[in-house]
Design a protein around this nucleic acid. Structure first.
Length: 434
RNA sequence: UCCGCGGUAGCUCAAUGGCAGAGCAUGCGGCUGUUAACCGCAGGGUUGUAGGUUCGAGCCCUACCCGCGGAGCCA
């Protein structure tokens, strides 16, 4: 026997005048003596169910009275268009069955502090705003896959467990790996993607990555999702063209497909409608000039901090692509600019409205000798990178790629204050539960 | 690791060094169109922990614990 629902709230508009059965949870309740208004949510939407004392048996009316916030129940009723009701439709209840009465639910319709909400993240995800964010996240994930799948890319999954640091810079989560000593959780699949690009031309990976840095800001998680395309025969300009088209596609897809969610999130969509190619492209050196013009005491050669990024980003109403960073502040695998040895062919994309870096990418060093030199300069053990150097020994080609942080993108598009709401169960330096 | 702010009822917050309070949630009662409904009543407290100052400490002092915001680091 099947118990799965035949109707969901999102389908009600096609069943006006019909009697349907809905299953879900009580989001909120209001009553006025002989009439009760039950707000049912079922994951697809919210609908007000009206229980009139005259229309139902005393038992059914009493059952409705017993329902507490987040109790689960099944309700039968006739769908009608009702402008007074949120969502425009409501259900005239004729029958109601309690599935499970909820204990006193901790998250009330009033305000809560962030500590309490995160402690109750497993329940918090039921809230209207969180449901909207998670739906937008899911839509962005699909948009990302659709974009690459339809642009000639092949999904190429890198390992999560790795023997060494990819970039040799950030701190990694460490573990014992049987008799082989230490292993680490990946901080990027990029080096592996490069081998994929040499095999399949254009590849991408999409999955969780891990950073053990003790960053304690609204822009950091220790576990976050990253999409990393890597393309053979792409130079920096080709890379930027792709990044630009990619971001435009994601934003325009969400605008088109997540209208209700963006309303719930009270997002100013005019700022998103503006996210159309071309995006401004400035060099690092030009970005430094912007900072100096704004009165920031900034030395050419340093990396930008969070506030620097915001100042630069505020100069533009679209994502800004900053390219050609000083060699010293960037990773060993980035190709040096043939026209200026002091900079590498890297690009960071800064989202508007203070959301910071959402993309970091570069053209990769494809010359074996120069790559070896860079590995030595960074004090990295060459033995770990022999397989990576092979990619330059056996038919090396110019190639490029980038990584986009999913949660930062979700956060920007949804207009969130903090990255922790952009993932179901955030992992942060002082928080790994629930 | 550093700087700043905070910890009082299940939750969000008040309380001049002088009786520990409100709203929401919960329970009971009322109301036939509510929109975070409303009205009445009730229960609910080791004020983060340990010390200290004081006639008297939620409030002042010391240490510690926990959290939040930021810096550094990083995407």
């Amino acid at each position: 026997m099947s118990i799965k629902p035949k109707f969901y709230v999102k389908d009600l508009k096609n069943h006006v005048g019909e009697e349907v059965t809905l299953k879900g949870w009580l989001y909120n309740k209001r009553s006025s003596g002989k009439i009760q208004f039950l707000i049912l949510r079922d994951g697809t939407g919210y609908v007000q169910c009206v229980v009139f004392k005259g229309n139902v048996t005393p038992e059914i009316f009493e059952a409705a009275e017993k329902l507490t916030q987040e109790s689960s129940f099944e309700v039968v009723g006739k769908v009608k268009a009702e402008p007074r009701s949120v969502g425009g439709y409501e259900l005239d209840v004729t029958d109601l069955k309690i599935i499970s009465i909820a204990q006193e639910y901790p998250i009330t319709p009033k305000e809560h502090g962030i500590e309490f909400l995160i402690d109750n993240r497993h329940l918090w995800v039921r809230s209207k705003k969180q449901v909207a964010i998670l739906k937008v996240r899911a839509r962005i994930v699909k948009a990302i896959r659709d974009f690459f799948d339809s642009h000639g890319f092949t999904l190429f999954d890198p390992p999560i467990i790795t023997p060494n640091a990819c970039e040799g810079t950030s701190t990694l989560f460490e573990m014992d790996y049987f008799d082989l000593g230490k292993a680490y959780l990946t901080q990027s699949g990029q080096l592996y993607e490069e081998s994929g690009a040499m095999a399949l031309g254009k590849v991408y990976s999409f999955g969780p990555t891990f950073r053990a840095e003790k960053s304690k800001t609204r822009r950091h998680l220790t576990e976050f999702w990253m999409v990393e395309p890597e393309m053979a025969f792409y130079d920096l300009d080709d890379n930027m063209d792709l990044a630009e088209e990619f971001i435009e596609y994601i934003v325009q897809t969400v605008l088109n497909d997540c209208k209700e969610e963006l309303i719930i999130l009270e997002r100013d969509t005019s700022k998103l409608e503006n996210i159309k190619r071309p995006f401004p492209r400035i060099s690092y050196t030009e970005a430094v000039e912007i900072l100096k013009r704004k009165g920031v005491d900034f030395q050419w050669g340093n990396d930008f901090g969070g506030t620097d990024e915001t100042i630069i980003g505020d100069e533009f109403d679209k994502p800004v692509m900053i390219h050609r960073y000083p060699t010293e502040v960037k990773a060993f695998y980035m190709k040096r600019d043939p026209e200026n040895e002091k900079v590498v062919l890297a690009v960071d994309v800064i989202a508007p409205e203070g959301y910071g870096e959402i993309i970091g990418g570069s053209q990769r060093e494809d010359n074996l000798d120069l790559l070896l030199q860079r590995i030595n300069e960074h004090g990295l053990p060459q033995s770990f990178f022999e397989w990576y150097l092979d990619l330059r020994r056996f038919g090396s080609v110019p190639h490029s790629g980038f990584g986009l942080g999913l949660e930062r993108t979700v956060s920007w598009i949804c207009g969130l204050e903090h990255l922790r709401e952009a993932i179901p169960f955030p992992r942060m330096i002082y928080r790994n539960t629930p």
